[in-house]
Amino acid sequence: MAVVTSGPTQLEIRGVSKSFGGVQAVSRVSVDVQKGQILSIIGPNGAGKTTLLNCISSVFHPETGTIVLEGQDLTRLSPARVAGRGIARTFQNIALFRGMTVVDNLMLGRHIHMKNGVLRSMLYWGPGRREEVEHRRVVEDIIDFLEIEAIRKRPVGSLPYGLQKRVELGRALALHPKVLLLDEPMGGTNHEEKEDMARFILDVNDEWGTTIILIEHDMGVVMDISQHVVVLDLGEKIAEGTPAEVKAHPQVIKAYLGTKATV
């Protein structure tokens, strides 16, 4: 199978399996993610897409297999450590600090980059203040980039769904991740919001060279923005390749449309 981009492999997923009770959610899945790639994971409901993402971000630890980022094994680390190593994510059902403002949510995204201890942050001036100002600037840049200046002081819980999705992307970006995992970034949003989100994803990838792995159901969007597509069905990888290759793959057609399909 042809590899689209020939960049070095940044994230190596090797033979990852995870089961819940008797259900094999992910079964010996291997994927090589190239640096700077936009990679989509698609598949019918229950294919194991979110489980695979949860294994990468260490929400679950896989029973077999390894996940290696730039030569470092992430498989057994805690979710917090994985975030510290440069993997940020968003969630299918949005996980934000709902009682806090947009700015505070993004500032929390800077947590792993903050070095001030209790004592130093008590001093208003000096290094503590310099660090604070520095993080503020990063956060304000992201707010500009995502065009959410107007709502920066609003508590996140009061925002409409589409904007919450955008704030969650902002918080993930605030980590300055090497790899960004997006679990249905367009799920439940309207047409206009979908277009905005697609634009932001492409811009992030373009401006910062961030590797992006996303799960998405909207095939139009997937085919438009991804360079590489991985197809899961019933926990197994059934195909991968460029959008065009995947679209023509007989097993993919079978998984989506059933047998005896003619396209």
Binding site: S57, V59, S78, P79, A80, R81, A83, G84, A88, R89, T90, F91, A95, L96, F97, R98, G99, M100, M107, L108, G109, H111, I112, M114, N116, G117, V118, S121, M122, R171, A172, A174, L175
Partner: peptide, 29 residues
């Protein structure tokens, strides 16, 4: 003061607010 202003205090508030989100930003819950 610790709870409102310090890095660990803010991490505590964040954890109280949403554990999953706290883990995702690298807070050791």
């Amino acid at each position: 003061w610790f709870f409102r202003k310090s890095r660990m205090g803010i991490a505590m508030r964040a954890t109280a607010n949403d554990q999953q989100a706290a883990m995702a930003v690298g807070i050791n819950v």
